[in-house]
């Protein structure tokens, strides 16, 4: 699935949206809604609340469109806005709801389920299970960083902006996170699958030696 529009297209859509073009805005909305929902439901596992906040976010953008500036990365911009909204509403909830019931559900935030992943041909089911296990054993912050980097292809600097951590600190922590992710996994290819990339790899090595 395409993760982002290319920069030129995105700038065009955003500019037209600011000029009041509903079609451009609907394209932005329909493209980013599923991605925002997927992120939001990980941050705060309350479907209705996430949906409401996304609607609200887009209404807000439309109403204040003339005052909005250019955005360098629309996806990062939308993610930051949604995150802020959800964390705010989480705080509000904590005041109104008994702490226990919330923390019970809170436990599920950033839990990755096997059903959320499709099979990559080159990974056996054992390795896949191990990867998911390792992923879930990371801290909530680390899981969020992996989610934004691996599954949303955002850059470290964009992620730093979203999760409000210094970029350097993400860079410093990454080797440790990846080491944890790799625990118990060694670079052995699946024997039972024809692996085109590895075949190519062997060929490259062959020709390099020549």
């Amino acid at each position: 699935m395409q993760e982002k529009f290319n920069k030129k297209d995105e700038d065009l859509l955003w500019k037209k949206m600011k000029l009041g073009d509903q079609k451009s805005f609907s394209i932005i909305f329909k493209f980013y809604y599923p991605k925002l929902y997927t992120y939001g439901i990980k941050l705060l596992p309350f479907s209705d609340l996430v949906r409401d906040q996304i609607q609200d976010l887009f209404i807000n953008i439309w109403q204040s469109r003339e005052a909005l500036g250019d955005v360098s990365n629309l996806k990062a911009y939308l993610f930051i806005s949604l995150r802020r909204r959800l964390l705010n509403s989480k705080e509000k909830r904590q005041h109104t709801e008994p702490i226990e019931s919330l923390s019970e559900k809170d436990y599920q935030s950033w839990l990755f389920e096997p059903a959320e992943f499709i099979d990559a041909a080159f990974v056996s089911s054992n390795v896949r299970e191990r990867l998911i296990k390792n992923l879930n054993s990371l801290s909530v912050n680390q899981r969020e960083i992996i989610f934004l980097r691996f599954y949303n292809q955002l850059t470290y600097s964009e992620i730093a902006n979203i999760v409000n951590i210094k970029e350097q600190s993400i860079k410093n922590n990454m080797p440790k996170i990846l080491q944890k992710l790799a625990e118990g996994i060694t670079g052995i290819s699946r024997e039972d699958v024809r692996d085109i990339d590895i075949m190519l790899f062997n060929l490259f090595l062959l020709f390099q030696k020549k």
């Binding site: 929902y37 997927t38 992943f117 499709i118 989610f147 990846l178 992710l181």
Partner: peptide, 10 residues
């Protein structure tokens, strides 16, 4: 395996 072994579906 580590970087793209899990193909996430939102």
């Amino acid at each position: 395996t580590i970087l793209s072994g899990l193909d996430f579906q939102g």
